[in-house]
Amino acid sequence: MSLVVRAPSQTAAPRRRNVKLGRIIVRYVFLIAVLIFAVFPFLWTLAIALTDKTAGGSIYNFPASLFPKAITFHNFADVYRTFSLGKYIWNSVSITGMTIIGTLLVSALAAYPLARFRFPGKGIIFAVIIATLVLPGETTFIVNTLTLKKMGLLGTHLGVVLPTVAAAFGIFLMRQAFLSIPQALLEAARLDGAGELTILTRIMLPLSVPSLAALGIFTLVGTWNAYFWPMLALSGAPDAVPLSVAVLKLKGQFNYDPFNIAAGSIIMMIPVLLVFLAAQKLFMRGMEGAVK
């Protein structure tokens, strides 16, 4: 009886295994196809950036352009010198640095009472901050340029930074971090006579470092990459633009050198790529999307 039952299953098992193996192969073929789609433009740009342009040839010389024969870092030095890339790198660093500091400061300050205090109007303020997530922003950039102009900040880094630092994402992220800190710790500090600012800087913030780091990293990547707003706010100050704006401007120049543009692009991409690789898990948690 048992033999009869087992016999067909024994012949079926290897076939099923083959089918399974086939499925896995199909899966990987598909995954690799998507991989090529995702990273190909980046890899090609890297190849162009590393190509020795003195040997002649164009970036459209396939397949040689995809697999450079001689590798050189000359393009990086060349673009840094001829396009005064240092200036734009500094602009990017300045804007990004100010945005990170501003975002962390404003978010942490706002999150503290929302997490820890009872006060009239708390519910309304909550609703107001949530509303910013769904409000239409189609005309915001027009009015903000007018406002900044009136404040005399249009064309300055501070003008780029100010409108972006207060956002629901950061405030809620920090509030959540503060909520998880035991109340007993705060009570003990208050009994010891600590003021609220001391509690915030000595207890809340040190215990929220992971959240602060997460917020800092998201802000860094977002600000470093931002194009439209800095382009608009700095349209009257071409020397103050960040790399993201400068790279496109360089590309728009007549007679531009594609090898140098590629090198400039890679220079701009590297910090973000390093941060992303170091903090992959943070991005893979999908936190950003939750409140966008």
């Binding site: 995954l31 998507v34 991989l35 995702a38 990273v39 190909f40 433009p41 980046f42 090609w44 740009t45 162009i48 164009s58 970036i59 459209y60 396939f62 995809l66 990547v221 470093w224 990459n225 931002a226 194009y227 439209f228 993201s244 704006v245 790279v247 496109l248 590309k251 594609p258 543009i261 590629a262 692009s265 701009m268 991409m269 973000v272 790529l273 992303f276 690789l277 992959q280 991005f283 893979m284």
Partner: peptide
């Protein structure tokens, strides 16, 4: 694969423009 698929998300639109402009060029990839 997950990390690699996310790279375009952390790529600035201006770099995407540089790269894709070459891809779409008459002589491009």
């Amino acid at each position: 694969f997950r990390a690699a698929y996310y790279i375009p998300v952390v790529t600035s639109i201006s770099l995407a423009a540089v790269m894709w402009d070459w891809v779409y060029n008459k002589e491009g990839t």
